Simulated scan of single mutants.
Amino acid sequence: MPFQRFVQTGRIAKCSAGPLKGRLITIVDVIDQNRVLIDGPLTGVPRQEYRLNNLHLTKYRIKFPFTAPTRIVRKAWVDNDLKAKWKSTPWSIKSQNICKRTRLNDFDRFKLRYAKRQRNKLLTVAFNALKKRTKSDGTTRVLKKDRRAKILKSKAEKKAGGKK
């Protein structure tokens, strides 16, 4: 499959290094094969040169003439509603989740680990109950573990509902 993301005027990219890491920018002009002129009027990035090695190109591109002033770039950005488009992409959602996870303190990580452990216990009990219930001849029967899974599930729901 041929390339679909080119370094070109109007291409939206995500910075991957330095103080601008994680911010969306627009390529305004290509300086040479290693550097581009970027601008991010709505993401707080001033117009500057930036290395191509530190950019991740996105699939989005907005139309404006090369070396356009910031006001024209801002208008094109708003007209295309790029902020909303970007927030709905899996790439953005994944990076937001990574950011949330890095901000967790020790106690939050403990709570997350404990909640995952409880969830996995419930899933294991339910899975084993379904596995045992299904016989080779096709008959089904209710097992004690199946009832136990329901009880554990209701306890977990009560506990989760009470802490809100």
Rank of each mutant, 00 (worst) to 15 (best):
L82E: 03
L82C: 15
L82T: 02
K83A: 12
K83M: 11
A84N: 14
A84F: 07
A84D: 04
K85W: 00
K85H: 01
K85V: 00
K85R: 14
K85C: 04
K85G: 00
K87Q: 15
K87S: 15
K87E: 15
S88D: 01
S88R: 13
T89K: 13
T89Q: 12
T89P: 01
T89R: 09
P90Q: 07
W91M: 10
W91L: 06
W91C: 08
W91K: 09
W91F: 12
W91Y: 07
W91N: 05
S92P: 03
S92W: 04
I93E: 11
I93N: 10
I93H: 11
I93W: 02
K94P: 00
K94L: 08
S95W: 11
S95P: 05
S95M: 13
Q96F: 10
Q96R: 15
Q96C: 05
N97Y: 08
N97E: 14
N97Q: 08
I98V: 03
I98F: 09
K100N: 12
K100Q: 15
R101A: 14
R101S: 10
T102S: 09
T102C: 10
T102F: 05
T102A: 07
R103W: 04
R103Y: 05
L104I: 10
N105F: 01
N105M: 01
N105S: 13
D106M: 05
D106Y: 08
D106R: 11
D106L: 03
F107V: 11
F107Y: 02
D108P: 06
D108Q: 14
R109C: 03
R109H: 09
R109A: 03
R109G: 02
F110N: 07
F110H: 05
F110R: 05
K111P: 00
K111T: 13
K111A: 06
K111V: 03
K111G: 02
K111Q: 09
K111M: 14
K111W: 02
K111F: 02
L112I: 08
R113G: 04
R113C: 07
R113Q: 06
R113H: 13
R113I: 00
A115W: 01
K116S: 07
K116E: 07
R117F: 11
R117M: 06
Q118E: 15
R119G: 00
N120R: 15
N120H: 02
N120C: 08
N120D: 14
L122C: 08
L122I: 14
L122E: 06
L122G: 12
